[in-house]
Design a protein around this nucleic acid. Structure first.
Lengths: 234, 234
DNA sequence: GTATGATTGAAACGAACGTTTGACTTCCGG
DNA sequence: CCGGAAGTCAAACGTTCGTTTCAATCATAC
């Protein structure tokens, strides 16, 4: 077998990156916990950065392939018509959770890592991560716009952002046990809750920018509006 | 004047932490850009960790005070009755944006930092951050539960999570100019869009252990469920 | 003016980091 | 047997980190 070492490094690095973050995890931590030599990371992967890239590739490629597969099927079925919002969101949100089931603990760890990377520092490893994600975001934003033709591009863009934020936090924090909250649920339940929230948010009525009947404090800014009647279609 | 140096350090550190993340920003970066001596950070704040704490305290204290103030007013007005979902969410979401207006560029920078810290590494500075946030989360979760009495505690907890995720990403990424997307909007517009999304998501019908109709592939798991009749009340 | 406490300055500390080196195993086709 | 590629190992490389030290400076009260 060519490299049991390689896989051990990948597994441990995935867990430690997810637990402590990329910059806060040293190669010495990884190699010590994996029981391999320090130099083997550079031997097998080149650099720490390339280790992250390999790690992302391993899980991201199948996940995103599945996303696009579901999206293609969905759009083919819709023909020229508009796809259903829930179908689009399901195609976007389900694959990571599917993979999590299939990969077991490693998959759950990966979910947390992905959630964390969404806010990770601004350097090249962020670019490494975004390279996998940008095409997905672009295509699903377009699909969402077709499902919500009454919104302008900016609104759709922002709702996609909010959606990603919900997903990321659900993955990063939601799946780790936390004191004070209810016990963590099964990932399937989390998925159901997330999808319900996402559909409700994405399909919400257009943000009402027009009438502002400011409450009392604050000179009528949108923020201080507290008693807005303000029905507003588009 | 006792410490122009102290404020310069705080301002620069806030910006650099927001741009690059806490672990990736060195005290040398901060002091060089602020034009002060390296040792002055440790002189004025003690440690890098304490610098972060001071920085958070400066912005968080008034923001969270305002949140609780709005929440108290809201609950007083509601008496024993159930508060309106939108009012609760507005009390939670508006103060950071209000502060951002009042603080100008520094406030906007702080929003990005807060968004980033939600996914920051697991060490003590994360605890530092959470110390400011946990009480807020607890009180608003309770208020949200009163506004949504038909949901169980778990559902409310998760919707609060999703809400925080949306807010965090909106703050962290949404306010920084990004290639490929529409030009960044005014924070007021972002706030309106976020609030609309949040109300829609939080007030969504109970997670889809309710009937879902659609699609074809997938063997009946919760994730692949696309044709599930499965009504399930509570 | 001079003593005193607060602040700044330049330099160094020890530790930890990612990476490289070169010798040492291990394994297998000839 | 052997030659050589593939992999492992301990040790060291040069850098950068947060922090400390201690002398120099400044303001202010006596």
């Amino acid at each position: 077998m060519p490299s049991e070492t390689k896989d051990r490094i990948l597994d441990v690095a995935e867990r430690l990156f997810a637990d402590r973050g990329y910059p806060a995890t040293s190669l010495r931590d990884i190699t010590a916990e994996a029981g391999v030599n320090l130099a083997s990371v550079n031997y097998h992967f080149g650099t720490k950065e390339a280790l992250l890239a390999a790690l992302l590739e391993r899980r991201f490629a199948p996940t995103n392939r599945r996303r696009l597969e579901l999206l293609d099927a969905l759009e083919a079925k819709a023909g020229g018509g508009r796809p259903r919002i829930e179908d689009v969101l399901r195609a976007f949100l389900a694959p990571p959770f599917e993979r999590q089931q299939e990969w077991g603990e490693g998959g759950r760890t990966f979910l947390r890592l992905v959630g964390r990377l969404h806010a990770e520092t601004n350097d090249e490893h962020r670019a490494t991560y975004l390279r996998h994600f940008e095409e997905i975001r672009r295509r699903f934003t377009a699909a969402l716009h077709r499902a919500l033709p009454h919104l302008d591009a900016g609104d759709v863009h922002w709702r996609m952002m909010f959606l990603i934020g919900s997903m990321a936090l659900a993955m990063a924090e939601g799946l780790t046990p936390r004191p004070g909250g209810p016990p963590p649920r099964d990932p399937e339940e989390v998925f159901d809750a997330l999808l319900a929230f996402a559909v409700g948010g994405v399909a919400a009525p257009s943000p009402c920018r027009v009438p502002v009947v400011a409450g009392r404090h604050g000179p009528g800014t949108a923020l201080a509006r507290e008693e807005a009647p303000a029905a507003r279609g588009r």
